[in-house]
Simulated assay, not measured.
Amino acid sequence: MTEGNFVDYVKMYVSSGKGGRGSAHLHREKYITKGGPDGGDGGRGGHIILRGNDNLWTLLHLKFKKHIRAGHGGNGSKSRSFGADGEDFYLDVPLGTVIRDTETNEILLEITENGEERIIAEGGKGGLGNWHFRSSTNQTPRYAQPGMPMEEKYITLELKVLADVGLVGFPNAGKSTLLSVVTSAKPKIADYEFTTLKPNLGIVEYRDFQTFVMADIPGIIEGAAEGKGLGHYFLRHIERNSILLFMIPADAEDIRKQYDILLDELRRYNPEMLDKDRVIAISKSDMLDDELKAEMKIELDNELPIPYLFISSVAQQGITELKDVLWKMLNV
């Protein structure tokens, strides 16, 4: 999946179907000139239904669908014939999709499971035919109910990436390079900041044909929690990751300080993120010789509060050990 094909924000108008009207027909046939009521009910209007689909990773297929309408219910007719229900409209969305009311920004529902179906706009009920209104004092009612009106609203679909491992780090920390090495994903890689502007997903192949999903989240900058840069746009994708893998380059001036800044941005955006399992990968460590690496270990053992590993995506150092640690954390 290329960056240009990743769409995680879509606005649209949805309208369910209106209910069909009930029939006020009176039974008539040869030799029966004054039969009783036999009007059928109107059909239900079609629903707009959101359905989770774990084969989808993006909202790209909905990018140009700005107006979604379900079918109207059919009208009732004679001989107590019911009107047909309006056709439901199914919107398949990737897991992790949040649906908001565009006008109020209120979260209406979330789709997190494959095959999960949730009605976002309910079709109007069909009106009752005059058959229902007969009584001993009114044996030929000449009225029936109209159908209920349709439901319409403007909604915003917002995808929060669902992945087992989310890569967190400042721009140009080596996240995309790691993803390209451990998965078959082909993220854009270059030696400048903000190469990645959209999340990239990849399947990491582990031993015995086992796999887990890794997400390369665009780089965080200080102040992202307040919306600086594209802060909120990036940070929301980290909310649904099981494990946070902090990527800090070996040539960083202060590794502990970088970790603290990243962690603070997550805390200010959503304190619940601190409940996730965390591990640090010190990237680009192929530039360190054994002596320097030993000195850094002594210092980092005292400073870092969580496990860490030295890795180099380019030199393929520490990659197998990293997979082992992540798999063990996912399956505790």
Rank of each mutant, 00 (worst) to 15 (best):
V93E: 07
H67A: 06
Y206I: 03
M148H: 10
V325F: 00
V161L: 03
K18W: 01
R28K: 14
L304Q: 02
I311G: 05
L292Y: 14
W131C: 02
P271N: 09
N105I: 04
K175C: 01
H61Y: 07
I311H: 02
G73M: 07
S283E: 02
D85E: 09
N302C: 02
E272W: 01
P187D: 04
L326A: 03
T137K: 15
P141V: 04
D38Q: 10
E152N: 12
L266T: 05
G22I: 07
G169Q: 10
K297I: 11
R134C: 05
L62A: 04
P249W: 00
R69I: 15
R268H: 13
H25A: 15
G124A: 12
A84K: 13
G20Q: 15
G45A: 12
I155E: 00
E158G: 00
K78Y: 11
V7N: 08
L59S: 03
S176R: 04
I155V: 15
D277K: 10
L91H: 04
S77W: 00
D41K: 05
V279N: 03
Y90F: 15
T2W: 14
L274T: 10
L179Y: 08
W327E: 09
M273V: 10
L309H: 06
I243P: 00
L322C: 12
K34E: 13
W57L: 12
L157I: 13
D301A: 01
A163M: 09
D85A: 13
L288S: 04
S135N: 09
D324A: 03
Y259D: 07
I107S: 06
T195Y: 06
I119W: 08
I243C: 03
K153N: 02
G86A: 09
P146N: 13
R44G: 13
F209D: 14
I203A: 10
K153T: 04
E3Y: 06
V279C: 06
K175H: 13
I261V: 15
L262R: 10
G126S: 11
D286W: 05
S16D: 04
L128G: 03
P199M: 02
L109E: 00
E110K: 15
H132F: 01
D216R: 09
N241P: 01
P307D: 12
I203W: 10
E110W: 06
K30H: 14
E158K: 05
Y259I: 11
K65R: 13
S242K: 15
D164C: 02
R267D: 10
N75Q: 00
F212R: 01
L108R: 09
L167T: 01
V168W: 10
E113Y: 08
E299K: 14
I306T: 01
Y259F: 15
I111D: 07
D290T: 08
R69G: 00
R51L: 08
P146F: 10
H237S: 05
L263T: 08
F234M: 10
G174E: 07
G202V: 08
S242E: 15
E321A: 14
M148R: 09
F209M: 08
P94A: 05
G229T: 03
Y143K: 05
V204L: 11
I68L: 12
G20L: 15
I68M: 08
G166D: 07
H232S: 02
R240P: 01
E122Y: 13
T2G: 08
K66A: 12
E3I: 02
L263S: 15
D277N: 02
